[in-house]
Design a protein around this nucleic acid. Structure first.
Lengths: 141, 141
DNA sequence: TTAGTTGCAAAGGCTTTGCACGCGC
DNA sequence: GCGCGTGCAAAGCCTTTGCAACTAA
């Protein structure tokens, strides 16, 4: 059925100061199965607002991450990717060759718990599951 | 009791060309101090062989990863960490504040499988599970 | 011998920062 | 008007690379 409220609506509600740049970044992040690098976000944002700067895209992405609206995904390469779908729990397929990322669902994630003995005073906030391997495109090469 | 399965022996068997530098990197990776950054490996290696260069440490670590003897762990920060324990499956606790990593074991990892419908032609090689949160030391601040 | 390894320094790629100007509220 | 947001360029950090000298097998 209906998805959670659009990113921009959620942000407005939270009193986020709205500028053309921020709107455009949020718009660039909208959509399904989107896992863009900061550079890809910049590229998309520039189609809507050509004067936007790289620094602003980085600033805005970092804020969205801090607000918990967007998730930062560490992948096999060192490039950060951003997942607008932070609200809906899901897992990822990560290609070790091209660094690409795709959403996937897996069962049993909630059942995973670290051994309490080894946990000590570590406070777990989230469980990240990633299936690493090689994507179809990279296998063809 | 029995000596740990020496990384160096495995490598020799595989026809790895053995140099002082490589031996020292392998030694630096041995032990319980298990999730070092390249810089930390360099520091330890230098205690044993002061002339070793940073580039050689990077080269050697990358080789060990390619050989499957060491695992590269992507964390919340962009710094790569190296896990000599690649042979024994285990999971990690990752501190989002300081970037620290600790081994932990969790049950049910083998039972995780991505939804085949979304998998397509992606070939899964391994399943990575990380519990993200805040470590005891960082919570104290 | 000789192919593979090392060290140095420089380059590379991604991200952050300092500061002056501009704009939403 | 005030204070936060933006843009630019430069710096920062981690990692890789080019190349000449060296060395294990």
């Amino acid at each position: 059925m209906s998805a959670p409220p659009p990113l921009l609506d959620r942000l407005r509600t939270r009193g986020w100061r709205l500028t053309a740049q921020r709107r455009v970044v949020a718009e660039a992040m909208t959509g399904d199965n989107v896992h863009m690098t900061a550079d890809e976000v910049l590229e998309r944002a520039r189609r809507l607002l050509p004067e936007i700067s790289r620094a602003t895209v980085y600033n805005t992405l970092n804020e969205l991450v801090e607000l918990g609206e967007v998730a930062e995904i560490p992948g096999p390469d060192r490039v950060r990717r951003y997942d607008p779908n932070a609200v809906v729990p899901h897992q990822h397929l990560a290609c070790e060759v091209c660094g690409g990322l795709w959403d996937v669902h897996a069962e049993g994630v909630e059942a995973l718990h670290p051994d309490p003995a080894a946990l000590g005073d570590f406070e777990v906030a989230s469980t990240v599951v990633t299936f690493r391997g090689v994507c179809a495109a990279c296998r063809g090469r």
